[in-house]
Simulated assay, not measured.
Amino acid sequence: MRHLRTSVTAVCATVLSAAVLVPATASAAPAPAPGAGAGAFTTGVVWADGFEEPVVPAPQPFTGHPAGGTVGAWTVGTGSVDLVSDRLWDAAEGRQSVDLSGNGPGSISRTVPTHPLTTYVVTYRLAGNSGRPPAVKTGELRVDGAVVDDLTFDTTGRTPRAMGWEQRTVYFTTLLRTSATLTFSSTTESNGGPVVDDVTVRSCLLVLCPYTTAAVP
């Protein structure tokens, strides 16, 4: 389901018919992330990761992680990915980021807890490995198998010290489930693909969240 948008009126009707709205967390609302666009509506950080663990050992510029392995809390599902130190290129946040094409296109997944009838805001930073062809990197962000964003990034004119990181924001709504699996994957047939960093998942009250891009049954 790609970029399905529903109006606030339709969302309100759904909530009223369900007769219950379950907030995702009782914690105070965090400061909005740059470019998130929904800071006023978010109710708490569910999970965040800047790919700082494990630490890439000096003097290595990166470490490769094949399918079946892990990158911190993420599981490598297909192919391989590279955990990259800022010795090779600048991270968007902290000192490390992930190239989704290691020896070839790969993917990483992470399951986060969710509540029914709650919308979640996912923010992340996107760039690309400018040292390997092709110039335009492609990939996907999926939630429980549904595509919610594409990872297209043009590295033309970019360098390791001028990555051109973009802030991305997507939304998904859980209807009945108590968890959701996020998967970042590369579709770039190369050993240099889209690069991600600074992933944050926040909860958002369904009647207040302005956009919904994917419903997860």
Rank of each mutant, 00 (worst) to 15 (best):
P134A: 05
S190Q: 01
V81A: 07
A19L: 11
V56F: 09
A10Q: 04
S85F: 12
V71K: 00
T43C: 01
L182V: 06
T78F: 07
L208H: 05
R158C: 15
T152L: 12
R177K: 13
T42E: 14
T42K: 00
T200Q: 03
V207P: 13
K137F: 09
A127S: 15
K137I: 08
A18H: 14
R161I: 12
G39H: 06
G139T: 01
S97L: 02
T63W: 08
T212Y: 01
A135I: 11
V170Y: 03
S80L: 05
Y171H: 12
A135C: 00
V216L: 11
D149S: 14
P217R: 06
T123A: 06
T63Q: 11
E189L: 14
Y171V: 08
V199W: 11
T9D: 08
P105G: 11
H115I: 07
F153C: 13
P105E: 09
Q167K: 10
L151A: 13
L176K: 05
L16Y: 05
S109N: 11
T200F: 00
D82L: 14
Y120K: 04
F172Q: 09
V71E: 05
N103F: 10
T63E: 14
T155Q: 08
G131T: 10
D144C: 04
S7E: 01
D154F: 14
D49T: 06
V121Y: 01
A92T: 03
Y211W: 11
A162K: 13
S203C: 13
E52L: 07
V56Y: 04
G79M: 06
L182A: 05
L176S: 14
S107V: 12
R110T: 02
S185M: 14
S185T: 15
H65S: 08
T159V: 12
T187F: 09
S179G: 02
G94R: 06
R5E: 09
W165G: 03
V148Q: 10
R168M: 07
R161Y: 12
T123H: 08
G128L: 07
V207D: 14
P23D: 06
G128D: 09
P30T: 08
A13W: 01
A91N: 02
G44T: 01
D99P: 07
S101Y: 05
W74M: 04
V122H: 09
L88P: 02
V199Q: 12
T183W: 02
V98Q: 08
V148D: 01
A215W: 11
F172L: 07
A92G: 15
S185L: 15
L175S: 12
L176Y: 07
V56E: 05
A36M: 02
T155D: 12
R125G: 15
S185E: 15
E52P: 02
T138N: 13
T174N: 15
A40M: 04
G106V: 14
A40D: 11
K137E: 11
H65N: 13
P194T: 10
A36H: 00
T14L: 01
A26G: 15
E53Q: 06
L83I: 05
L100D: 06
V216K: 02
F51E: 00
D90L: 08
T212W: 05
T156C: 08
A26Y: 10
L208M: 04
R168N: 07
V121R: 14
G72V: 07
A18M: 04
V207R: 10
